[in-house]
Design a protein around this nucleic acid. Structure first.
Length: 467
RNA sequence: GCGGCCGUAGCUCAACUGGUUAGAGCACUCGCCUGUCACGCGAGAGGUUACCGGUUCAAGUCCGGCCGGCCGCGCCA
């Protein structure tokens, strides 16, 4: 017999069916046993009637055993219908249970919400934690979100392109994760903090509309809403101005959120200048929902734009606030090229805020090498230093670069809003602890002496504290 | 790096101002149970109180150290 998914059983009422999955719950009443079986599509109650041939193996079956169950799909007696549950109106009258694989008793209960369980235990057994209904829902919703984003972007003529993971250290920005090069001893790749430079090069290369579901990796201390790795919907478009990128992304977010059954508080998204946001909310990210809206899962998006381009460093110089590759707003191009009133220059940066999170951000980029040069001059770099850092971009921009701009959306941040989760780890399949230890596997670990030798690396650590 | 909270049974927790043999619920094992759905009832098993040291007649409890987890600050173009 062919397998029927549990979610499709209600189409086979009165017919025989074979399901495969896990024993979720067993309720043994002696002469009669009830089970809840679970597969990726849901759960269903099975019943072993008195004197059934299945009784012997049913007595063996335990929680989380993997089983193949054959039986007849029956409507439940009226008084046993559970209208609010999937398959609450049917049950499988079991004729045979084949135990495919036994299971140890799980270290914690996975039939309920696991959020109250110690997180280090959940992460050690993440593959069990992920069996829980809530985690299944979160991870599936993530897949659905990404699929809908892809669908939208493909309709808009975007091309999905992958950019390298082993790449150059980012000029400025956050701390890099580095990877030693065996072929070039003593030299290191950096993992990308974002595909920023590559996506701009793809605009030079004429793809015009690029996107990537891109991993971004930054070696900064972790938070509830921030991990070493996160995923971005990374977007870049040619022949566009600020308004074009914002309206494209806004249309995408509306289509995706509404097709997932969510309500958006205000359309079109309200816009605040940075100065207005700071005055009204005291922050450049804020939550505009009422208490009831928070309860019902409303999404409150807003744009924040007209950020200062530069801010003072502790040393009294200037550094960029968001992105050195950004254009200033058109009215301030002159000031930037002349390096006048630097603190007042505004950038084309635009951030998308949702329910108190910075859900994404982007800008129009400078396709004119002179503007990028001026930015680096303002930050105090010599011609040679600028050349060293972004010379390859300046070179590329010489060969017919279209005006372009883009944006990156944080997948986890958006999912947190869609799932009402407080922690980024709840929307990642295999997150790490705040101390940087991976789930299930215990990375990071030391290299073997052989590996170290091959890479030309000598480890010299200060002695560890101990009793 | 800094500050805060936490660590007791497989899980969630309790154990008064330090005081008998560290308890409960769930899970687990066994028995009973013909309509349960967090099934029910009964019994049982399960502990180096994270770890190391100190104070004390006596430490899960107080002190010091150390390891681990979480939250925030710094940091995060």
């Amino acid at each position: 017999m062919e397998r029927t998914f549990i979610g499709d059983l209600n189409q086979k009422i009165g017919e025989p069916a074979l399901i495969r999955g896990w024993v979720s719950v067993r309720r043994d009443q002696g002469k009669m046993i009830f089970f809840d079986f679970r597969d990726m599509t849901g759960t269903v109650q099975g019943v072993v009637l008195p004197k059934s041939d299945a009784m012997e193996s049913a007595k063996e079956a335990r929680t989380e055993y993997v089983v193949a169950v054959t039986g007849t799909v029956n409507k439940r007696p009226d008084k046993n219908i559970q209208a609010d549950k999937l398959n609450g109106d049917i049950e499988l009258q079991i004729e045979k249970i084949e135990i495919i694989n036994k299971a140890e008793t799980p270290p914690f209960e996975i039939t309920g919400d696991t959020s109250a369980i110690n997180e280090d235990v959940r992460l050690q057994y993440r593959y069990l934690d992920l069996r829980s209904e809530r985690m299944q829902r979160n991870i599936r919703m993530r897949s659905e979100f990404v699929q809908k984003v892809r669908d939208f972007l493909f309709k808009q003529k975007f091309t999905e392109i992958e950019t390298p993971l082993l790449t150059e250290s980012t000029p400025e920005g956050s701390r890099d994760f580095v990877v030693p090069s065996r072929l070039n001893p003593g030299k290191f790749y950096a993992l990308p903090q974002s595909p920023q430079q590559y996506k701009q090069l793809l605009m030079v290369a004429g793809f015009e509309r690029y996107f990537q579901i891109a991993r971004a990796i930054r070696d900064e201390d972790l938070r509830a809403d921030r991990g070493f790795e996160h995923t971005q919907i990374d977007i870049e478009m040619s022949f566009v101005e600020q308004e074009d990128v914002m309206s494209t992304v806004e249309a995408m977010l509306i289509e995706v959120a509404e097709s997932m059954g969510r309500t958006i508080k205000q359309k079109p998204f309200p816009r605040f200048t940075y100065a207005e946001a700071m005055e009204k909310y005291g922050a450049d990210k804020f939550d505009m929902r009422t208490a009831e809206e928070k309860e019902s899962g409303v999404l409150a998006y807003a744009w924040v734009y007209k950020f200062p381009f530069f801010e003072k460093t502790d040393e009294g110089g200037w550094t960029f606030t968001h992105n050195p590759f950004s254009m200033p707003i058109p009215e301030h191009i002159d000031q930037l090229l002349k390096k006048e009133n630097i603190g007042e220059i505004l950038t084309t940066q635009y951030d998308i805020v949702c329910n108190g999170f910075e859900a994404g951000g982007g800008s129009i980029r400078s396709h004119d090498p002179n503007i990028l040069r001026s930015v680096y001059e303002i930050m105090g770099y010599t011609k040679e230093e600028t050349e060293e850092r972004v010379g390859h971009m300046l070179e590329a921009f010489k060969y017919g670069t279209p005006p372009h701009g883009g944006l990156a959306l944080g997948v986890e941040r958006n999912l947190m809003n869609l799932t009402n989760e407080t922690y980024l780890r709840e929307v990642q399949a295999f997150p790490m602890t705040r101390g940087g230890q991976t789930a299930v596997m215990k990375a990071p670990k030391p290299l073997t002496d052989r590996q170290l030798k091959e890479l030309g690396i000598k480890v010299d650590l200060p002695p560890k504290k101990h009793d």
